[in-house]
Design a protein around this nucleic acid. Structure first.
Lengths: 192, 192
DNA sequence: ACCTGAACACCGTTCAAGT
DNA sequence: ACCTGAACACCGTTCAAGT
């Protein structure tokens, strides 16, 4: 019965990841010890290492879920129709104003990725997912602006949208009170 | 002779900080141990703890220097004259394309600041320095655009410029090959 | 087949002993 | 006055022993 065993294993991994996420959200990535995750999950150190190769793989799994969860919002937007770059960024960033998993964790995973090749690969893959979703969602807008070269414009625009969203999230993680609407409205006017 | 003693102490702190920076640039903040800094500096663990309260204070000292060093470029620009927001951001970001201290370290310090109140205070202070410098440098531009309310426009614009620069640096730390000129040119066109 | 938890090498930090 | 480095509590990880 490999199917049942595999489902069991996946459930255990998620159980551990959810306990770990609660501790990470309280204390941050670097200040979280395996001992704290052991306590929060009610399992043993050995059980965690039976399900994840090490702390880095566990972090990678959690980061993957957190980023996908945010990106899914834009992918759904792309299925529903298209919009302007500013509206698409607003859809991603306004979620960041209220959502549960703290923005600080996203920033911490980006920072760790600059020293951890495997986490880096995972996060670059997620950035590419977001880039694709942004490209799809602004394609109609791009066709209106540059009918002869819409794909290239959408690709280039989506790249910059990703960076602008990262900037907002860093700024908000550090200053706390920044509003996505103000950020986008001011960006719009300063570049016009 | 308190003057001499104080100068000595400062020289020791810088000697330790410079050795630490070399290790940090190679291995990243979280993967750098005191033992590695001991080896690189040629001193002992005790000597480091005689000059810095702990690893966090040493990191804070280094972060402070790194950020100030970058911000000084914009402060000099403000003394020389004024320019447009896009040109001012280009001045900050084009340095990031070649400069020695890796952009990854700035990102790691921002991330740590979300869990370390004292580092957070230092980095918010540096962000305010950059904000002031940006405000000064775009004030003439703001007066042309909104003569009746130039100060408010410059303040709001500078805030968004800080966030856009952070976005570029995160993006570049993760993707490596991003060009500041492309980022700003595309941002300019996508918001127009 | 999976879990437990004592044991290991290493971490940040301290402090008695030196100079 | 300042430095050394062994010692301490704690960290991530392993693995013999259990069920």
């Amino acid at each position: 019965m490999p199917r049942v065993t595999e489902a069991h294993r996946q459930a255990r991994r998620d159980e551990i990841a959810e306990a770990a996420l609660r501790v990470l959200a309280r204390n941050g990535v670097s200040a979280t010890s395996i001992a704290q995750i052991v306590e929060e999950s009610g399992l043993s150190a050995g059980a965690i290492y039976a399900n994840f190769a090490n702390k880095a793989e566990l972090a990678r799994y959690i980061a993957s879920v957190l980023f996908e969860w945010r990106i899914a919002r834009i992918q759904r937007l792309a299925e529903d129709g298209t919009t302007t770059p500013v509206e698409a960024m607003r859809a991603l960033l306004s979620a960041a104003e209220t959502d549960a998993p703290p923005v600080g964790l996203l920033l911490q995973f980006w920072a760790e990725a600059t020293n951890d090749e495997e986490l880096h690969a995972v996060l670059v893959e997620k950035m590419e997912l977001l880039h694709s979703a942004f490209r799809d969602v602004v394609l109609a807008w791009a066709r209106e602006r540059a009918p002869e070269d819409a794909e290239a414009l959408a690709t280039r625009t989506a790249r910059t949208m990703v960076a602008m969203c990262q900037g907002f999230l860093v700024n908000r993680a550090l200053l706390g009170w920044v509003s996505a609407d103000d950020y986008l409205a001011t960006a719009e006017s300063l570049l016009r």
